[in-house]
C-alpha cells in the first residue's frame, strides 16, 4: 500500500539542470501553472462583457472583489485600497491552490513549506519596500521605537528583528501544516475503505465528511493567510510604533 506521504512527493516532469542548479519543471510547478491559468480564464470569461446589471459570472467575480475590498478596509483602512489587486491575487491563488489539491491525482503545492515559504518571504520583502516607501527611514523605528533609552537597543533590536522574521514563518507553517494534515487524514481513511471489506462504508462516510470539512478548511486557511498578510502590511505602513 502507498504511504500517505507519497502524495507530497515532488516529481520531475521536465528535468533541467543549469550551472548545477536544479530548475526542473515539477508536478508542483504544473499545479501552480494550472491554478494561475484557471484563475485567469475564469475571470476573463466572467468579466469580458461588463454590464451595469451583472451576469452570474460577473456577480461572482465582483462578490469576491468586494469581499477582499471590505477585508482590506477593515484592516488597512481607506489607504489600503491601493493594495486590493495584490491581496486579491494572493487570496485567489491560495484558495484555488488549496481547492485543486483536493482533486484525485492532483498535487497540493500549498502543503509544501518551500512553495508557501517563498510566497511569504516575497510578501515580507514587499512589506518592507512598502513600509520604506511610505515612511522613509522612519520605517526602521519599528526596530527601535522613539523615546526608548539607547541602553535598551541591544535588547529591543534583536527582539523586534526576530518578531519580523517570524511573520513569514508563522504564515507558512499555519497554511502548510493545515493542508498536509487534512490530506494525510483523507489518505489514511481512504486506505481503510478497501481493507475493511464489507464494513468499508464506515470510513467511506467519514472520508466524505472530511472532504466537506477540508473544502471549508481550504477557504478558511486562504482567508486567514490573506487577513494576516493584511495585518502585517498594516503594521509595516502604519505610522504607529
Amino acid at each position: 500500500m502507498e504511504s500517505p506521504l507519497e502524495q507530497f512527493e515532488i516529481k520531475k516532469i521536465i528535468p533541467w539542470q543549469w550551472e548545477g542548479i536544479d530548475l526542473s519543471f515539477t508536478n508542483s510547478a504544473l499545479c501552480m501553472l494550472i491554478t494561475v491559468s484557471v484563475i485567469f480564464i475564469t475571470f476573463t470569461l466572467c468579466l469580458h462583457k461588463r454590464q451595469i446589471v451583472p451576469t452570474m459570472g460577473q456577480a461572482f467575480s465582483e462578490s469576491i472583489y468586494d469581499f477582499i475590498q471590505s477585508m482590506i478596509g477593515e484592516t488597512l483602512g481607506k489607504d489600503g485600497l491601493k493594495y486590493v489587486s495584490l491581496i486579491f491575487t494572493l487570496f485567489t491563488f491560495i484558495a484555488l491552490g488549496n481547492m485543486l489539491g483536493l482533486f484525485p491525482y492532483s498535487f497540493t503545492f500549498t502543503s509544501h513549506i518551500a512553495a508557501v515559504g517563498t510566497l511569504s518571504v516575497f510578501f515580507l520583502v514587499l512589506n518592507i519596500i512598502f513600509g520604506i516607501k511610505r515612511r522613509g527611514l522612519g520605517y526602521f523605528h519599528t526596530f527601535f521605537p522613539h523615546g526608548l533609552p539607547w541602553i535598551m537597543a541591544p535588547l529591543i533590536i534583536p527582539v523586534e528583528t526576530l518578531s519580523l522574521l517570524a511573520k513569514p514563518f508563522s504564515l507558512t507553517i499555519r497554511l502548510a501544516v493545515n493542508m498536509s494534515v487534512g490530506h494525510i487524514m483523507l489518505k489514511v481513511l481512504g486506505s481503510f475503505i478497501v481493507t475493511m471489506g464489507i464494513f468499508g462504508f464506515i470510513p467511506l462516510i467519514a472520508d466524505m465528511c472530511i472532504i466537506m470539512f477540508e473544502l471549508f478548511v481550504t477557504l478558511l486557511q486562504a482567508y486567514i493567510y490573506t487577513t494576516l498578510s493584511c495585518v502585517y502590511l498594516s503594521q509595516a505602513i502604519s505610522d504607529e510604533e
Partner: peptide, 14 residues
C-alpha cells in the same frame, strides 16, 4: 490558530 503560532514561531526562528 493565530495566537498559538504567533508565540512559537519567533522561538523557532531564534
Amino acid at each position: 490558530f493565530r495566537m498559538s503560532i504567533e508565540f512559537v514561531s519567533p522561538i523557532f526562528i531564534g
